[in-house]
Design a protein around this nucleic acid. Structure first.
Lengths: 144, 144
DNA sequence: GCATAATAATTATGCGCATAACCAATATGT
DNA sequence: ACATATTGGTTATGCGCATAATTATTATGC
């Protein structure tokens, strides 16, 4: 592959990251959330109570990141942490009532953001978009 | 759009961002670069000397980010900053010889990364990928 | 010509992400 | 059973990104 084409791809991914994140930030700000935190809330809403190691795996980020995000969401009253009875190292994270309500609001925003993001693309392309993006992600995923 | 589909798209973009950046980081680390810096070097290699406001525009990030990145690249000896003769507010940024050599190495890595990223996709999809990504980016771009 | 607006850059601060080092608790191998 | 390895979590530190506020210079309106 020549450099022009390669750069078009890499640069497009970089810019999409920046812009999609920035747009998410502006939508989440009125809810008092920063981008990244919504993923944690949605994962808890989907899966129910989890320990941080599971969150780290599900969100695709490292344990120290989860420590800080959970701390801030806990300070905001959206989640609760309790020691796991079966393993005294682990702490179980779950949504509070406020967190559950917030997650519902995030779901609405998430739909609006996705629709805005794919606007103007042919329906067929939209349909195969998740598959394409997942392939790209899998190709550069060194996490395993 | 229902939440499942919306989340598939938003989450896929978020994960692609994380993984592509992480992969870029591991490729750039041997060159002593952090992700983001390569974009600045490549832009200077493509366009020649520029002032920071132009870099900010071209890279799609804010002026304070450019200030810090240029400071670090300058400390590494890869770029040089000189006051602009025509406008004493502006500073002209250009590659040093070391920076030019480094940019060439980055170009090689960039091709390898793009090939790795699109591996397994049909050629037709690869061909339209930049267009699709740019459409997505444009849809959420509030910068103008 | 001079007050005012706009622009280039910087500093301060905060968030998400990372890695490295560390502690506490559980699992394992002999 | 006990030393060792593994796992869950935290702290410290550093980078890229952001916004808000500040300074210095240039452009503009009357």
């Amino acid at each position: 592959m020549d450099f022009e084409h390669a750069d078009a791809i890499n640069q497009a991914i970089r810019l999409l990251s920046l812009r999609h994140r920035a747009r998410a930030a502006s939508l989440l700000a009125p809810l008092g959330l920063h981008p990244g935190q919504e993923a944690l809330l949605l994962e808890l809403a989907r899966h129910g109570p989890m320990i941080q190691a599971q969150l780290s795996e599900a969100l695709g980020c490292e344990p120290p990141s989860v420590t800080l995000m959970t701390r801030k969401l806990e300070a905001g009253g959206h989640i609760r942490r309790a020691p796991a009875p079966s393993d005294r190292r682990a702490s179980i994270v779950e949504l509070t009532d406020s967190g559950k309500a917030l997650a519902e609001q995030v779901k609405q925003l998430w739909c609006a953001l996705a629709e805005e993001t794919v606007r103007g693309l042919p329906a067929a392309t939209v349909a195969e978009l998740p598959g394409i993006l997942n392939t790209l992600t899998g190709n550069v995923d060194t996490r395993r």
